[in-house]
Amino acid sequence: MMRKKLLKLYDDLYAEYGELNWWPAETPFEIIIGAILGQATAWRNAAKAIDNLKAADLLNPEGLSKLTQDELETLILPSGYYRAKAKKVRAFVTHLQEHHNNQLDSLFAQELPPLREELLSIYGIGEETADGILLYAAKKPSFVVDTYTYRLMERLGWFSGRFHYGRLRGIFMENLPHDCQLFNQYHALIVRHGARVCQKTPQCERCMLRAECPTGNQSE
Rank of each mutant, 00 (worst) to 15 (best):
G170Q: 15
I133S: 03
E16N: 11
A211Q: 12
K88P: 00
L75C: 12
K87M: 12
I50H: 02
E16S: 14
Q185T: 05
A138Q: 01
E128R: 08
Q69H: 15
L209Q: 06
W22D: 04
I33G: 05
M208E: 12
S79I: 07
L72E: 04
E154Q: 12
A25Y: 01
T27I: 04
I76F: 05
E71I: 08
T74L: 14
Y17N: 11
K87L: 13
L77Y: 15
S106N: 12
I31H: 02
L53V: 04
H100Q: 11
L75P: 01
N60P: 01
L64G: 02
A49P: 00
R90M: 14
V145T: 09
T27V: 02
P141V: 10
L209P: 01
S106I: 06
H164T: 09
E127R: 15
I32Q: 06
T149Q: 01
G170K: 15
T129W: 03
M1N: 12
E30Q: 14
G38W: 04
R3I: 01
P28Y: 07
G132I: 02
K66V: 05
I171L: 15
S121N: 12
D57H: 15
S121Q: 10
L112I: 04
G161V: 08
E117N: 11
W158L: 13
Y150F: 13
I50C: 03
A130E: 00
G166P: 00
H178M: 06
A47F: 01
Q110N: 10
E128S: 11
E128G: 10
Q203S: 05
T27F: 00
W23K: 06
L156K: 08
S65T: 13
D11M: 07
F92C: 04
E26N: 14
E154L: 03
Q185L: 07
L58S: 10
N21V: 03
F172P: 02
K48P: 00
I171E: 09
L120I: 09
N217K: 15
R116P: 00
N52W: 06
T74W: 05
Q218K: 15
Q69Y: 14
T215A: 12
F143V: 11
S219Y: 11
D51E: 15
T94A: 15
A109T: 10
R162L: 13
K200A: 13
M173N: 08
L156W: 01
Q203C: 03
Q110E: 11
P24E: 05
S79N: 05
T129K: 00
L107N: 08
A56M: 12
K140N: 00
G166E: 13
L13I: 10
Y123R: 14
E154V: 09
G161Q: 09
D105Y: 07
L58E: 08
H193Y: 09
V144N: 04
D70W: 00
A49T: 03
E212N: 12
A56I: 08
L59I: 09
